[in-house]
Amino acid sequence: MAKKNRTYLFMVIPAFIIFFTFHTFPALLGIFYSFTDYKGYGTWDFVGLSNYFNVFKDGRALSAYGFTFQFAITATILVNIVSLLIALGLNANIKLRKTLRAVYFLPFILSVLVVGYIFKFIFTHLLPDLGSGLGIEFLSFNILGNPDWAWIGVVILAVWQSAAFNTLLYLAGLSTIDNELYEAADMDGAGSWAKFWRITFPLIAPFFTINMVVAMKNFLMAFDQVMALTGGGPGQATESISLLIYRGGFEGGEFAYQSANAVIYFIVIVVISVLQLRVLERREEK
C-alpha cells in the first residue's frame, strides 16, 4: 500500500508543480499586479482598484467588449446550427459516411493562423477578383477593409473551423439514440420535423449544452482568428478583448492595467458559462 502511495505521489507531484508554475502562479501574479501601476518593467506602486474602475471608462476597452460579444454570440449560434445539420446528414445512411466524417474534421486539426492567412487571401484577393469578373457587386470589394463588414469575415473563419469539433460531439449524441424510437414514430405517422423536435433534440440536449458552453467560451477568448485575419482592424473595428489585453499588456506598457482587464474578463466568462449551464440544464429537464 505504501509503495502504491509513493508511486501516486511521484506521478501527481511533478504534474502539480508544472501546473502551478506555468498556470496558477502567473495567474495569481497577474491578479496581484492588477492592483499596482506596474508597466511590465521597472518599479511599481499600489494603486488599489483604480485600474478596475478605469477599464469601465476606457472607450477602447468597451468597444473591444462590444465586438467580442457580437462575434461570440453570432458565431456560437451559427456554429451549432451548421454542425448540427452536418451531423444529421452524416448520421443518415449515405455513401462514404465514414470518409466524410474524417473530411469534415480536418479543419479542426489545422493551425488557426494558417487557416486565417488562407481566408485572408480569399477575402482580400480571390473573392473580389471573382466578383469583379462575374459582375457581382457584393463580392467585388474586400470586406476585411470595411469596418462594418470585417467582423463577418472573422465569424465565417471561426464557424468554418470550429464546426468540426461541434459536429463530432453531435455525432456522439446521435449515436446514443435507439432507432426503434424512430420506427415507432414512423408507425405513428410523425414527420421529419416532429421526429427531430420530439425525439432527436431532447435526447441530444446534453450534447447541445456542452457545445453551446464550450463554443461561447472559446469564441469569447478569440485571439488567433482575429490576429491572422484582420489584426484587429480596420482601425480597431475587430479588436477582441484577448487581443487588446495582449497588445496593451505586452506592447503598450499597460501590464497592470490590462491585468485588471483580464481579471474582469475572466469573471465575465465564468458568469456567462455558469448562466448558460443553469439555463440549458434546466431546459434538459423539461
Rank of each mutant, 00 (worst) to 15 (best):
E183N: 07
G173K: 03
Y8R: 06
I269Q: 06
L220K: 01
V154M: 02
G173R: 02
N51V: 02
Y257N: 03
A194G: 09
Q70S: 09
T167S: 12
T21N: 03
A262H: 05
R6A: 09
V55I: 10
Q70K: 13
K95H: 12
I264F: 06
A61F: 14
F223S: 11
A158E: 06
N211A: 14
F201N: 10
I267H: 08
W193P: 06
K57I: 01
P206R: 11
P206W: 09
T200V: 12
L168Q: 08
F255Q: 08
P14A: 01
Y104N: 09
Y33V: 11
F201I: 07
I94R: 04
T200K: 05
K4I: 11
F119E: 00
A256I: 06
G153K: 00
L29N: 10
G232N: 07
A163P: 08
Y246Q: 10
I73M: 03
V274K: 00
L84Y: 00
G66I: 09
Y182D: 12
Q258R: 15
V47A: 01
F32M: 07
N5D: 02
A27H: 13
A215I: 10
L144V: 06
G232C: 15
I109R: 10
I81F: 14
L130D: 01
E137C: 01
Q236D: 15
V279I: 13
F250Q: 11
M227P: 04
F219T: 06
A27I: 15
D37P: 00
F35C: 07
L113E: 14
M212A: 15
L28D: 05
T43Q: 06
